[in-house]
Design a protein around this nucleic acid. Structure first.
Lengths: 176, 176
DNA sequence: CACAGTCGGTCTGGTCATCGAACCATACCC
DNA sequence: GGGTATGGTTCGATGACCAGACCGACTGTG
């Protein structure tokens, strides 16, 4: 399904937001980058997205100041979320929770988010019921829940165990 | 710009959510319906969306249990948000606020949301700083802010004055 | 150095969505 | 009957998306 990009004549801030993140695949890519999936090949393995579309979206997201592209070796690039992208985390989390509520998996939640210091699952608004704060991504860990459907790719395997948001999946385990 | 609809092999709840509301125009239509714009012709006037696309989206949103379609006269239809749609309000508001923060209009906010009982502008998370609650749409009023860019259509004119969410734009004024 | 493999893309051809404009059926008003 | 409002559908052209083939730069291996 194609998704257009511009909503030219809409004076609303929602239209502005959708011009940045409303295109097909963009929010899923953003989620993956927040999950620590930062490389072209890993994003492809995890999302089953056509190469050309992924290349196009990454370029658009760099241009929109959502991603920072930097080499980790000669000719090899990594994409990291900018402050603007991190600022979207509560919305992304809210949308995911909405999907979880209205399209539940039989066995339970597909993914669990916990406040790292408190070790408490976040509520629907992304807040920590224990300490009352709304943690930034850096303080949130995520792991597969009981409703999780396994995927074959190597990236998905890494995301089953608890892992802080933003930690590159290429790096070692949970980290405390 | 087209936006596809299905993300078949993604086991994530975010993909499920995007299959409901990820298509082009869908979130803008949902916002408009929450603003009280419930008729085909009014949506068209406010969004500048091709007729065929609007008809397709409305049908999809009814099928996804986001909208309830009911006649208000012989052969005339109105679309009203379901509970599922109302449940998405905090996300919609969060995305709008994100757009406002990262694409500000020079003169200030484009649209202001206030908690009706407290008459206090909502914070970025959709909460009321006065009473500490997160009001449902029925308790929120909205009006044009200083950064508002006027549009010529008759619907936009109605949305300039304060008005509770969900109140049909065809109905009379602010209502307290 | 030749060779294979990995990575991050680009190119191509076919399909599908979107766009803008025209058309249409019903109901109402006079 | 003629005119208008409403809620669509149909059409042709353009553009987005998709799957798969191709490619250039670099790395490691012998």
């Amino acid at each position: 399904m194609p998704l257009g990009k511009d909503y030219r004549d809409q004076p609303c801030s929602l239209a502005r937001a959708l011009e940045d993140v409303g295109e097909r695949w963009t929010l899923l890519i953003l989620r993956d980058v927040l999950f620590g999936i930062t490389r072209f090949s890993d994003l492809r393995a995890h999302l089953d997205i056509p190469r050309a579309v992924l290349a196009d979206r990454l370029a658009a997201m760099v241009a929109a100041d959502l991603l920072d592209r930097r080499p980790y070796a000669a000719g090899r690039e990594e994409y990291h979320p900018t402050a603007k992208a991190l600022d979207l985390w509560p919305v992304l989390h809210g949308l995911l929770e909405w999907g979880e509520r209205h399209h539940p998996a039989g066995a339970g939640r597909r993914r669990v988010f916990r406040h790292l210091p408190c070790h408490t699952p976040l509520d629907a608004r992304g807040g920590c019921p224990e300490c009352g704060t709304t943690p930034p991504p850096s303080e949130v860990e995520h792991l597969a829940g009981p409703g999780h459907t396994p995927r074959a790719d190597h990236v998905s395997a890494r995301l089953r165990e608890p892992r802080p948001l933003l930690r590159p999946v290429r790096d070692a385990g949970p980290g405390h």
